[in-house]
Computed example of a mutant assay.
Amino acid sequence: MKILYYTSTGNNLFIAKQLGGELLSIPQLVKDNIYEIKDDSVGIVFPVFFATSPKTLREFVEKVNIHADYIFLICSYGSDGDYHALKIMKKTFNKRGININYTNSVLMVDNFLPVFDMAHEMEIKNDSDIEKQIEIIKNDIISKKDFIYSKKHFTNVPFIEKILESTMTSKYHIIADDGCSSCRICTKVCPRGNIEVIDGKPHFGEACDFCLSCVHHCKTHTLSINDEANPNERYINPNVKLSEIIKSNNLYQ
């Protein structure tokens, strides 16, 4: 079994590790121009961004050829949008003649800083509940269960694809203040290779996924988001090491 994953704060790498199999980072696959994936079972584990998936992943899904008897999609989400994200990705694969056997979601800490207070999120999201959700999904995948997740949704898919993401990213933006230590961790955890440290300050290109990995990992709080719910709080999955996220996302290694 191969599991392709996209991670920023470690949530989806944690899910992928719990499910087992051979883990393949999607940013690294894109970097190495690998778009042919073969195995008996293949899954994609990803976060919900604006009720869809990250731009890097959407571009990857448009090109990747998956050859497997059993294909599954698992997303992590913090409040809503999981149904839409899974539906959009499944629809993209189906249009390309690739059948999806199983879709499901895991409710985890929502690390979207402009809306959620990380301290509160960590207080109300129980690790044991998360592990129970993953265990159910793992057993389903081992038995190769056919299941397509369904949920009452709040709007239609075309609206999500065309409107919500652009609205959110125009409303919120990353701010680089003084105080950078030039550790360059932000450059190493960026899944798009979109950040450079120039003259002791992070500079961003035009390819941002708005995954906020750089902000959450910034040790000096040099990076922030406008209108944060709690500017003093950050989140990294406690079960995942920084070195693992760098290995997954660093496009300069």
Rank of each mutant, 00 (worst) to 15 (best):
S79W: 09
S79K: 10
S79M: 03
S79Y: 01
G81R: 04
G81F: 03
Y83E: 04
H84L: 14
A85W: 04
A85C: 11
A85K: 06
L86K: 03
L86I: 11
K87D: 15
I88W: 01
M89P: 02
M89F: 11
K90R: 07
K91C: 06
K91V: 07
K91D: 13
F93P: 05
F93M: 11
N94D: 10
K95Y: 07
K95Q: 12
K95V: 10
R96M: 15
R96P: 15
G97E: 01
G97Y: 06
I98R: 02
I98N: 02
I98H: 00
N99R: 14
N99H: 11
N99C: 10
N99W: 09
N99V: 12
I100K: 10
N101W: 06
Y102P: 03
Y102I: 03
Y102L: 07
Y102A: 08
T103A: 02
S105V: 09
V106R: 05
V106Y: 00
L107V: 02
M108I: 09
V109C: 06
V109M: 06
V109N: 05
D110C: 10
D110H: 08
F112P: 08
F112M: 00
L113P: 03
L113K: 08
P114R: 00
P114Q: 01
V115E: 00
F116Q: 03
F116M: 07
F116A: 04
F116Y: 11
M118S: 04
M118C: 09
A119T: 00
A119F: 00
H120V: 08
H120N: 08
H120L: 08
E123K: 13
E123M: 09
E123G: 14
I124T: 13
